[in-house]
């Protein structure tokens, strides 16, 4: 080998090694910044196990001297328990999400795979309606729900929750990407639209439906504005309202507050751990196309 080639190979090897080291350095730095991003959550969890006197000890004592479980216990059992809020949140989120997925998929099929007079104008109108900020809708919805008799009732959250324009938009996008030959073949075999929707398109679109379902569930679970405006009675409170109410009733019980907050975000953390691929994909899609 001539010296030139040797030095070239040496250079490449060195470059490789420095790249590998660089990779690990970057990874460690990014991990550190990532942990910094999550510090508020670690602080929350740590505080929920502390005694009241330890909350503001500085430098921060990340691992409490004695692990106290009583704050968490109070969240789950006893008269101030959150179980009831949990039940309300689960009920509202599950029904709204199930309804929204089904109704959005139906409409998405109509917009993507059937043709009717005024279809495109109607869809354009849909997109325009999507721009209306929720702030505009609160007052008229408040009056309408009063009039309908569903103010201070879970239906005030469930019924509007079943209709999302974004869902139609997202699922339609996916339906349009399914080749038309598939439905044409089924047509020739004598299947109608309903059967094609139910037996061919929906099974093919499972990933898109799952993405929307997970996103919609997390939005419903975290919904604070609608609950704040349309629910009055404590028995009807969802988790966000329950949390807010907690601070009003136990102003200075910081440990209890943090235990309650942990309980409030636990389901979303679990959901996120198992479905993060869908959530991240869905959020990315919603921004790029929305």
């Amino acid at each position: 080998m001539d010296p030139h080639t040797v030095s070239r190979i040496k250079h490449l090897v060195r470059r490789r090694a420095s790249l590998a080291i660089g990779t690990w350095v970057t990874t460690v730095v990014m991990l550190a910044i990532g942990l910094l991003m999550l510090l508020p959550f670690f602080w929350m969890i740590s505080t929920s196990f502390k005694s009241p006197g330890e909350v503001f000890v500085f430098p921060i004592q990340w691992i409490p001297e004695t692990f106290r479980l009583d704050h968490h216990q109070a969240v789950w059992v006893g008269e101030q328990s959150f179980v009831h809020y949990y039940y309300n949140s689960v009920k509202i989120s599950v029904i709204s999400t199930a309804g929204a997925v089904f109704l959005s998929a139906l409409a998405a099929y109509g917009f993507a795979r059937t043709s009717f007079l005024g279809r495109d104008i109607m869809f354009f109108l849909y997109l325009s309606i999507m721009m209306i900020p929720p702030q505009i809708l609160f007052v008229p919805k408040f009056m309408m729900f009063n009039w309908l008799g569903i103010y201070n009732n879970h239906l005030a959250l469930i019924l509007p929750g079943m209709f999302t324009i974004f869902g139609v938009f997202l699922i339609r996008q996916f339906f349009m990407s399914i080749p038309h030959e598939i439905s044409e073949a089924a047509f020739i075999d004598g299947a109608g639209h309903v059967r094609i929707f139910w037996q061919i398109i929906v099974p093919l679109a499972k990933p898109a439906l799952a993405t929307f379902a997970i996103l919609d569930f997390s939005w419903n679970w975290n919904d604070y504005e609608n609950a704040l405006i349309f629910l009055i009675d404590k028995q009807l409170y969802t988790i966000p309202l329950g949390l807010q109410n907690y601070i009003l009733e136990h102003n200075i019980n910081y440990n209890g507050m943090m235990a309650a907050a942990s309980a409030g975000i636990l389901p979303i953390i679990i959901l996120f751990l198992f479905t993060q691929r869908y959530i991240i994909q869905g959020v990315a899609q919603s921004a790029v196309k929305g």
Binding site: L19, G22, T23, W24, T26, T27, M30, L31, G34, L35, M37, L38, P40, F41, W43, M44, S218, W221, N222, Y224, I239, P240, L243, Q244, I247, M257, M258, A260, A261, S262, G264, I265, I268, I269, F272, Q276, I279, I280, V283
Partner: peptide, 27 residues
């Protein structure tokens, strides 16, 4: 860029975004 554990890191940065606003407010 060249980073290990890309998925884990991505999730770490993303987590606050999906959190309940009231719980986040408390902390």
């Amino acid at each position: 860029a060249h980073v290990r554990m890309k998925k884990l890191l991505r999730s770490m940065y993303f987590l606050p975004y999906v959190m309940n606003g009231v719980a986040v407010a408390f902390v």
